[in-house]
């Protein structure tokens, strides 16, 4: 989705103001690190600034026109002096950085400026980051780097110290909810979507996604089974869960949803019903909230977060889910 300068300025006023000033004063840094949660518009801002650097007819000296040849080619990924590196599979390989380096040992194709944008920079392998480091250290004149990440801490400190770090603030859930409702999302569903993503377009897509609707039902069902008949939970995993949550991304989403249920229970206990997200399940959750304690909920939540971490470290998904279900079963802690 294409977003103009003004639209992005509404989302990230501080970041855009800084960029605007550096453009106007001609003090664009050689490397930027954009850090912020998923859907906060990091890539859009990166592309926008790239356009501003290449645009032939800037509006007011900093806004790209979005209509000239260079702007359009950057948008479609066809500009020969703009290089975008995405993770190849699970990580960014050292070969990708090497080919970037050979590319940058040459002069530009059309201009003297060159831009590279590395999305998910935290997914660089160790050798890739070290290889990049050399490259960040001695930038060629006219080269601008954009590194995008959701997890700042996972980058090498030596990389961080060489970049200008810009933090992208997540959209406040309330604002997001309001926007979602304005875009025709049912008010009962809006809080859940707002919790899961910061990107309006993604939220709208999820809203109509068949898989996501089914996923919600399965997660709620899993929780109920755990509550009512813990022994059946393992069976339920086999019959419903694994057939629906196949990819790693999907399991992450499932765990996020599960986490939100426990968060809701906590909110009910703290008497903050207005912050609940599973509004449709309100009645049932109230019942469950009466039967558990705050301490227990927080233990269960940390078990889910632990499971998410293990999934990221490539644990077998089936074993991970089974271990999680055993941990979530109340009263017994034999694993």
């Amino acid at each position: 989705m294409e977003k103009t300068w003004d639209q992005l300025e509404e989302l990230q006023p501080t970041v855009l103001k800084m960029l605007k000033n550096s453009l106007l004063k001609n003090r664009v840094a050689h490397a930027y690190l954009f850090e912020g949660m998923r859907g906060t518009g990091k890539k859009e801002v990166g592309l926008l600034l790239t356009k501003a650097l290449f645009c032939e007819s800037l509006i007011e000296g900093y806004k790209p026109c979005e209509t000239c040849n260079n702007c359009r080619r950057i948008q479609s990924g066809n500009h020969p002096d703009v290089h975008i590196v995405e993770p190849d599979g699970l990580s960014i390989k050292v070969d990708q950085i090497r080919s970037l380096q050979t590319e940058f040992s040459k002069k530009g194709v059309e201009s003297l400026k060159k831009v590279y944008l590395i999305s998910h920079a935290d997914k660089m392998s160790v050798s890739a980051s070290n290889s990049l480091l050399k490259f960040l250290e001695e930038p060629n004149p006219g080269t601008v780097a954009f590194l995008l990440t959701e997890q700042l801490q996972q980058l090498l400190p030596t990389i961080l110290s060489r970049c200008q770090i810009l933090t992208f603030k997540p959209l406040a859930p309330k604002v997001m909810m309001k926007q979602l409702v304005e875009n025709g999302v049912a008010p009962v569903k809006a809080p859940l979507l707002a919790q899961l993503t910061n990107n309006l377009d993604e939220a709208l897509k999820l809203n109509v996604d068949e898989w996501f609707a089914q996923a919600q039902k399965i997660v709620v069902k899993l929780y109920e089974v755990l509550k009512k008949n813990p022994l059946e939970a393992m069976v339920m995993l086999q019959s419903d869960w694994f057939s629906h949550f196949k990819e790693k991304e999907q399991i992450h989403r499932g765990l996020d949803l599960l986490l939100l249920i426990f968060k809701d229970l906590l909110y009910i206990q703290l008497d903050k019903q207005e912050q609940m997200v599973f509004i449709e399940e309100d009645e049932r959750l109230r019942q469950f909230a009466l039967q558990t304690s705050g301490r227990r909920i927080s233990d269960q939540m940390s078990a889910i977060l632990e499971a998410k971490r293990k999934l990221q470290a490539n644990m077998n998904p089936q074993l991970m889910m089974e271990q999680l279900v055993l941990k979530l079963q109340e009263g017994s802690s034999f694993v």
Partner: peptide
């Protein structure tokens, strides 16, 4: 040119980028 070198034979043009540095 600034970024490229061009060889022009009959009906054939060959462009190459130059190295930086």
């Amino acid at each position: 040119t600034e970024n490229q070198i061009l060889f022009k034979a009959k009906h054939l043009l060959f462009f190459s980028r130059l190295l930086e540095g």
